[in-house]
Design a protein around this nucleic acid. Structure first.
Length: 180
DNA sequence: GATAAGATGTTA
DNA sequence: AACATCTTATCA
């Protein structure tokens, strides 16, 4: 498997969200490399009221404004972590939320955005981490080619603002996609 | 300083 | 359908 380069992330956020399906999220910890196939994503951009970067930069979401390929990790509901990958260009707050993984190596029970962070030990310590760095503890590798006919595009989950936008993508008939 | 809401998951 | 649990944004 080959590590993705920055050009992959330096594109329109919805395009990256769609293309991340079938890629592999990797997390190195204690000499073990956890791997999971990305099966569900959501796109968030600065002009979207549901995005943390809507209205500009803040301490929490500052990572969204960094270079494409940066990891953005935040805490939600006081107890759950979620991870995004920054997209498009630097200084523009946008990213793709990883919502679900199909377990490959050392990963289990990852059919939800908080569950996958728990099973890979992704915490705020990884916020702002540049996945392009050679020694990064988290990165993305190429994986499967997903055909267009196997990709479903629909509305996002768990948000109240801009709930009608169809910015969620998942692999059709994959059992690890989060349930409503 | 106080308050409300939040890109969720588990339990019943 | 309730709740666990706390950071962040917003307002005073």
């Amino acid at each position: 498997m080959k590590k993705l380069n920055r050009d992959f992330f330096a594109k329109d956020t919805e395009t990256v969200a769609k293309e991340l399906l079938g890629k592999v999220l990797c997390r190195k910890k204690d000499n073990k490399i956890y791997r999971g196939l990305i099966v569900e994503t959501e796109a968030y951009t600065q002009d979207d009221p549901a995005c943390h970067a809507f209205g500009g930069i803040s301490r929490r979401c500052e990572s969204l404004f960094k270079k494409p390929g940066t990891a953005y990790v935040y805490l939600i509901y006081g107890m759950h972590h979620c991870v995004n990958l920054v997209t498009d260009k630097e200084e523009y707050g946008s990213g793709v939320l990883i919502r679900a993984l199909e377990p490959l190596e050392y990963v289990e029970n990852s059919n939800g955005p908080a569950k996958l962070c728990k099973s890979m030990d992704i915490t705020k310590k990884l916020d702002g981490c540049d996945t392009m760095q050679e020694d990064s503890p988290i990165w993305i590798e190429s994986g499967l080619i997903i055909k267009d006919k196997d990709i479903i595009q629909t509305t996002r989950i768990g948000i109240s603002k801009a709930a009608d936008l169809r910015r969620r993508f998942y692999i059709k008939n994959n059992k690890w996609v989060s349930k409503k």
